[in-house]
Design a protein around this nucleic acid. Structure first.
Length: 303
DNA sequence: ACCCAGGCGGGCG
DNA sequence: CGCCCGCATGGG
């Protein structure tokens, strides 16, 4: 039993329900930009790199509430299970969340269309990099740029003859030149990326400040050059699990104006207020359903 | 050819 | 403050 890829042992996470893996990884969240997803007749598979190793997930059609996984790198079966549990929000109470965000017929449609989509919780630095790259950019190019950075700056790991790369560390990106980052397709964001990488590398406590309140943490993040209001909210939501965050991008603005303001233009601040009043501590979940449902159905797009 | 993209910082009024 | 502009570059 030797040779490339031989003998990968799979473990199981039982009783996983209300999880739409595909929607969770194809809805503009960090995994959209660097993970690999595949679906065939018998099963769906997902593979993604973290800062510690590579996680593989498999779910067979015949056993839909059982998640199978394997790992390489610095994981144990326990820590890999915890990584998956956190990453996919397996402890989120989806029934509670849905009961709070299905406030109207639009949200009913969005939830029913994307049922099981999770707000994923990624590493803070990973979220920061992905969403800085996302500014004034499109999905395909964001993906190409992040993948290129993983390829060029992620550490190699080799386990059982299988080689892969980790998600690039802040140190590695900080040490790259602006020209190198632009060669990955980062464009004018290259200097923001280098700066943010430097800040995360020099302030490792940033990566474990989940205990701070939303306001305090947002202030901290917006102090990083290249991180503004929208990207800070994305890092709070997708990097620290702050579900009250409601990032307002061009899609959210368009859809919310169309659905809730009769097509009338609103300032970002009033959209924030509206979301906080309507969805409170679950606003981030509402945001993810509005974003993806609106984008898939091109709601509010003119012409 | 042309407009747009999960924005941000800087400069001006 | 609030508004306006440039910014790199590929996708549709």
């Amino acid at each position: 039993m030797t040779g490339a890829g031989a003998d990968v042992q799979f473990h199981t996470i039982p009783n996983v329900n209300d999880l739409n893996i595909r929607a969770s990884v194809e809805s503009g969240q960090p995994l959209t930009f660097h993970a690999g997803y595949a679906l065939d007749d018998g099963a769906e598979r997902l593979e993604y790199a973290t800062d510690k190793g590579v996680i593989k997930i498999r779910r067979e059609r015949a056993r839909p509430s059982s998640l199978q996984y394997s790992f390489t790198g610095g994981y144990t079966w326990r820590s890999a299970r915890d990584e998956i549990t956190t990453r996919f929000g397996l402890s989120h109470d989806m029934h509670q969340i849905y009961s709070r965000i299905r406030t109207d017929s639009f949200m009913e449609s969005a939830v029913s269309s994307l049922y099981g989509m999770r707000v994923t919780e990624n590493r803070p630095w990973e979220a920061a990099l992905c969403f800085i790259v996302s500014q004034f950019n499109n999905m395909k190019r964001i993906r190409g740029t992040i993948r290129s950075m993983v390829h060029r700056f992620g550490d190699d790991i080799e386990t059982d003859g299988v080689e892969a790369r980790l998600f690039p560390s802040p140190e590695a990106i900080s040490n790259a030149s602006v020209a190198d980052l632009m060669a990955c397709g980062a464009g004018f964001r290259a200097r923001y990326i280098k700066n943010a990488a430097h800040v995360f590398a020099e302030n490792p406590e940033l990566s474990s400040m989940h205990g701070l309140e939303y306001d305090e943490l947002k202030k901290r993040l917006m102090g990083i050059g290249g991180v503004g209001d929208k990207v800070a909210d994305c890092i709070l939501l997708f990097g620290y699990g702050k579900h009250e965050a409601f990032p307002v991008d061009v899609w959210i603005k368009r859809v919310v104006e169309e659905v809730y303001f009769n097509g009338k233009g609103q300032k970002a601040a009033s959209i924030h207020d509206f979301a906080n009043e309507r969805w409170g501590k679950h606003a981030g979940y509402a945001q993810q359903y509005i974003f993806e449902f609106g984008r898939r159905n091109k709601i509010g797009v003119r012409k």
